[in-house]
């Protein structure tokens, strides 16, 4: 083995893109990512401390004070169609909103990532068979397959998470497989193999760390998309059922009184938008940081 091969190998565990500044400082230098991180942190704090922060019981209905406007003393964001405090429901709803965005991302990343790593590394028939299965799943536009799975399993939090995981696995699988296919041709992989390391060790210890950047970027952006996907399923009645405080469901039930109390539907919608923006800004920031080649393609 010639020395350049060894060099390529010895530097392989480093991230594909490295700079002079530590990554955390570069992340903080990205205005969008900082705003996204601040937004997400605020929402996470609101979710974690909803029990303390919420001024009222989110489930407590009081027909005498239905549809109070925002900025009412005692009920800062007003009340909904059953006289429940919207701020309290919003704070408790943040828990579910984060849960249904983050948990499906992690599960789909784990499942899709393992599939992508294995079939990408092995190649051959298992690879093309898996890709054909993914092609079929990509043939279902947008939320439709999730809608079908949710409708078949019956509405609820569990079936919503299953639906989101199933429809997002193929994309994760493709992203990881694409990275593995590109990495397989690199010298450091050849070097590691020629040192006698097992396939498993090469895939997990050498290839995976090198393709982590695009995967992290994709996972962050997908979490933002999951916020919308979950809200959409919830809006269609496939999410957690009333009286659970869930943003999509709050928006959906507030729709009936749009003329008399527009805030009941618009405020949860705004919360959904802010959470999705937080993940999208962080995803864009992570992309600029970890995968600078993509930056040029976008405004």
């Amino acid at each position: 083995m010639s020395s350049p091969n060894l060099d390529a190998f010895s530097s392989s565990p480093e991230p594909a893109v490295s700079g002079s500044r530590p990554w955390i400082r570069r992340l903080l230098g990205n205005a969008g990512a900082v705003v996204g991180l601040a937004l997400l942190t605020s929402i996470a704090i609101a979710a974690a401390f909803a029990g303390w922060l919420a001024p009222h019981d989110p489930l407590l209905a009081n027909p005498a004070i239905r549809h109070l406007s925002p900025f009412t003393p005692v009920h800062w964001l007003g009340t909904d169609e059953l006289g429940r405090d919207i701020l309290s429901r919003l704070l408790f709803g943040a828990r579910l909103a984060l849960l249904v965005a983050v948990v499906p991302t992690l599960l789909a990343l784990l499942a899709g990532g393992c599939i992508g790593l294995v079939v990408g590394y092995m190649g051959g028939a298992s690879d093309s068979a898996t890709m054909r299965v993914f092609d079929v799943m990509f043939a279902f536009p947008g939320i439709l397959l999730a809608l079908g799975i949710g409708a078949a399993l019956g509405p609820g939090l569990g079936s919503m998470i299953i639906a989101i995981v199933v429809v997002t696995i193929p994309a994760f699988g493709r992203v990881v497989r694409g990275g593995v296919l590109a990495a397989k041709r690199e010298l450091y992989v050849e070097a590691a193999r020629s040192l006698g390391y097992s396939h498993w060790r090469v895939a997990a210890r050498h290839i995976l760390p090198n393709i982590l950047g695009p995967i992290v970027v994709y996972a962050t952006l997908q979490t933002g998309r999951n916020v919308i996907l979950a809200a959409s399923l919830s809006f269609l009645g496939l999410g957690p059922q009333p009286p659970t405080p869930d943003w999509g469901q709050m928006l959906s039930s507030g729709r009936t009184a749009l003329a008399v109390a527009p805030h009941v539907a618009t405020i949860p919608g705004l919360a959904i938008v802010l959470l999705a923006i937080a993940f999208n800004l962080m995803g864009d920031g992570a992309r600029d940081l970890l995968d600078p080649r993509l930056k040029r393609q976008l405004p």
């Binding site: 959409s232 928006l251 539907a265 919608g269």
Partner: peptide, 25 residues
Amino acid sequence: SASVLFLNSMPPFWLGLVLILVFGL
């Protein structure tokens, strides 16, 4: 860039409700 980020983060049904609110009601 800002509009793309905003639209990318907006559930389509929420945009519809806001449009109904402004131009309809």
